[in-house]
Amino acid sequence: MSLIQCTNITKRYGSTLALDNVSLTLEAGAPIALIGPNGAGKTTLFSLLCGFLRASSGDALIMGHQAGSKALHGRLAALPQDANLDPRFSIGHQLELFAKLQGFIGSKAGNEVKRVLQQVDLSNTYDMKPEALSHGMRKRILLAQALMGSPELILLDEPTAGLDPPNVKVMRSLINDASKNATFIISSHNLDELEKVCQSVVHLDKGHLKGVVDIHQARNSGYLTVVMAELKTTDQDIRESLLSLPGVTAVSFNAPNRFVLEYDSKQHSNLDMLLMQHLSEKGWPYRQLVNGRTLEDQVYF
């Protein structure tokens, strides 16, 4: 049985088509990224899987059950992008309600809340109101509610949106730790972050499924990415020079000073050494050399 099986899902908001006939099968395991530009349908798909929205047509099965069905309570957890706790109650009081609804009885509910708050390193917030916390801390509290019990699937919608780098790092570390026990699906614009955490990518664009990519498999199949320091040489000259290297079939230029070399990795497995030597001979300093392509290059270029 697949973790998620979507069959011909369509979702309309009035005359706007948010998802168009999306069919998708995902298996349990390493974290999965859900990416796409604004308006691609990420949050709509996320909300459909959580049962917040009803599909206009099509079926979404999660662990064999219809999305939103009672059988998924406690097995599917989520951090919705715009969800907030009630500002009138303390965090502990609200999380205890969630724990009780998930079947924790009496003092076990309180203990579970303390456990997840400790997990996100916010034990001291038990008696605090949500409004007293920073944005980053509130996100971690929302992650804590998603970690309650033992969910098998955890969906996170933009978990790092609006967070400062230290909080992003904390969030990444929390997800890495928790992903040993549950499958994460993370929707985000932050491709660098997703690349560090996820194994595969679901790519949506304008409501259509563009594809499901295995990041690591795609990354190692004959690509080198080199980020150059500021140079006076034109990008065109650098590109032509790189194309002259043996085995290089294409050089693309997708961002300032960043070149992606496509090459025959079977015949020219030592291209990275040749490239460094070539750059040294030309006197072109480089900042970064990556074996493969970034997630951004894989899905958008």
Binding site: C50, G51, F52, G68, K70, H73, G74, L76, A77, A78, P80, D82, A83, N84, L85, D86, F98, L101, Q102, L142, Q145
Partner: peptide
């Protein structure tokens, strides 16, 4: 609770 999104958190645990 609907406007704040709290209902979403509740609906993951209760019908």
């Amino acid at each position: 609770d609907r406007a704040r999104g709290t209902l979403r958190l509740l609906s993951l645990r209760a019908g």
